[in-house]
């Protein structure tokens, strides 16, 4: 079964709907932290990543440094490098270098997971279809959330501000429940994050996230190296 552009659109539709809701939360948070509707939407259209963007608006709100911004994005999005490497093993021969350069923009957790689970070789048109519709959901949801954030009363936008974090919980908890090694990494990261927040408040948000994530992941990798099949 050939992986066509149309098939990419169909496979991307559930991702699009999921993104619509996640990015709605991002739009609310972005406007609450002082960005305009246009700026929030533009960030989503050019980044297409939840955790990186959430950390990004934190750094902007705290007037952090550009190096801090670059390093934070590097660490948070490091997983995409690995996904890109894995995906590069599964693409068809006609997948040109320019096509790689364009479609690499759309390597996200969800798009990677769907593309990688296909049995046939992945075509550039299939990737393009899935990315276009997913990107539409991500950017559109941000726009809606940002507009909602500016027109809804504070008591509602305040409550909606928890959505993005609740989604992070929804991503981590089911995995940590099944995999105790992930649970250990999670607890180390949270413990470090709490220490930074209350005992080392002079360390800026971006660097605190980097240090927490790197230290927790290094410790977990040292103590609990993964087996081959857990990739």
């Amino acid at each position: 079964m050939k992986l066509t552009f149309k098939k990419g659109l169909v496979h991307g539709l559930p991702i699009c709907l999921g993104y619509l809701s996640v990015s709605f939360g991002f739009g609310i948070s972005a406007v609450a932290s002082g960005l305009s509707v246009l700026e929030a939407t533009l960030i989503s259209a050019t980044n297409l990543t939840s955790a990186g963007q959430a950390a990004g608006i934190e750094i902007i709100a705290a007037a952090g440094g550009y190096i801090e911004m670059a390093l934070t994005q590097l660490i948070i999005n490091l997983r995409y490098a690995l996904m890109g490497i894995s995906l590069s093993q599964k693409i068809d021969k006609a997948y040109s270098v320019p096509a790689r350069m364009v479609t690499s923009f759309g390597i996200t957790d969800e798009i990677f997971a769907v593309a990688y689970s296909q049995t046939g070789q992945i075509t550039s048109l299939y990737m393009l279809g899935m990315i276009l519709i997913s990107c539409l959901g991500w950017t559109g949801g941000t726009l809606l959330g940002a507009v909602a954030g500016t027109v809804l009363p504070v008591i509602i936008t305040g409550a909606l501000g928890i959505m993005l974090y609740a989604m992070f919980i929804a991503i981590v908890v089911p995995v940590a429940k099944e995999d105790k090694k992930v649970l250990a990494a999670v607890f180390i990261a949270i413990a470090l994050s709490v220490i930074f927040k209350y005992l080392l408040p002079f360390v800026s948000a971006g660097f605190a996230i980097i240090i927490c994530a790197v230290v927790a992941s290094l410790l977990a990798a040292l103590i609990f190296p993964i087996k081959e099949e857990e990739e």
Binding site: I162, S193, A216, P225
Partner: peptide, 26 residues
């Protein structure tokens, strides 16, 4: 080792970003 490290990064990042920040999100 490097693959293990990359496996844990997303969960560590999301956890550190969520706690304790979530308590100030509303």
């Amino acid at each position: 080792f490097f693959r293990s490290f990359l496996y844990y990064v997303p969960y560590a990042v999301l956890s550190a970003m969520t706690f304790p920040s979530i308590f100030y999100s509303t």
